[in-house]
Amino acid sequence: MVHYKFTYFAVRGKGEFIRQLFALAGVEFEDDRFSLGPLGRAVSRDMEKWGELKKTTHFGQLPVLKFDGKELAQANAIAKYLGAEFGFNGSNPYEAALLDSIGIHYDDLFKACRPFYLSWHQISEQPMEEAYKVAVEPGRDEFFPPISKFLQESKSGFIVGEKVSWIDLLVADHCETFTRYNSHYLDKYPEVKAHMEKVHSIPAIKKWIQTRPDTEI
């Protein structure tokens, strides 16, 4: 049996949807987390441990997945690999490519939200409310219209194809983060809100959410 070790910080961020992939597939994994303190830095012994690990990773970043003596970095690459292994990367090459295109589209949203994340981690002095208005909302309104169209055309309620995919988990977790912060985040995108609720009602995902370490972001 393959031993998977998934290393990321003790936040949801760019790691939670990958953890949910394991839960969805019913595959055990080592959930290796580095605690974060003020300024988004790993705390105490975790800082020293991360400093040593950082030198050995492909890009000096997390998340990292290790298995069978191999290492894979970058969240979407990890998710695509596991999605293909576990059956959540579309039903054919075209669907897999569509999922990949949405993942690239999502990267623009994640970058747009960066000022908010910096504010939350106390790296930036910009108030979170201001960062939300000037960064998150414009990013949201660029990202979600195409996603809404995918969902309007979907017969399954998932973004692409007839079954849940790694992209569904990624988008739903993003929505959870920002609807926690602002309950009106998805008011203009009812299809997306329904999608988040659908994904989070999948029994394996629902159980994971109920039992995981809870973090705001």
Rank of each mutant, 00 (worst) to 15 (best):
M1E: 08
V2P: 13
F6R: 11
F6T: 12
T7H: 07
T7E: 03
R12P: 04
K14W: 02
E16R: 00
F17T: 01
I18H: 09
Q20L: 07
A23G: 00
L24Y: 03
F29C: 06
D31I: 15
D31V: 15
D32I: 00
D32E: 10
R33I: 15
P38K: 13
P38Q: 10
A42G: 06
S44I: 14
T56Q: 14
T57L: 06
H58C: 11
F67N: 01
A73S: 15
A75M: 09
N76E: 03
A77P: 06
A77M: 08
G83I: 10
G83Q: 10
F86K: 00
G87L: 10
S91P: 04
P93G: 04
Y94T: 15
Y94L: 14
A96Q: 11
D100V: 05
D100K: 03
I102W: 01
G103I: 02
H105Y: 10
Y106G: 02
D107A: 11
D108V: 09
A112V: 09
C113R: 12
P115L: 11
F116Y: 12
F116I: 05
Y117M: 13
Y117A: 13
W120H: 14
I123G: 00
Q126D: 10
P127F: 05
M128T: 15
E129C: 06
E130F: 01
Y132N: 02
K133D: 12
V134E: 08
P138S: 08
E142H: 07
S156K: 05
V160A: 05
G161C: 06
V164S: 05
I167S: 04
T177E: 02
T179M: 09
N182D: 14
N182G: 00
V192E: 10
A194F: 04
V199S: 02
H200N: 10
H200R: 06
A204I: 00
A204S: 10
K206D: 01
W208D: 09
Q210Y: 02
R212G: 08
P213F: 02
P213I: 02
D214R: 07
E216I: 09
I217H: 00
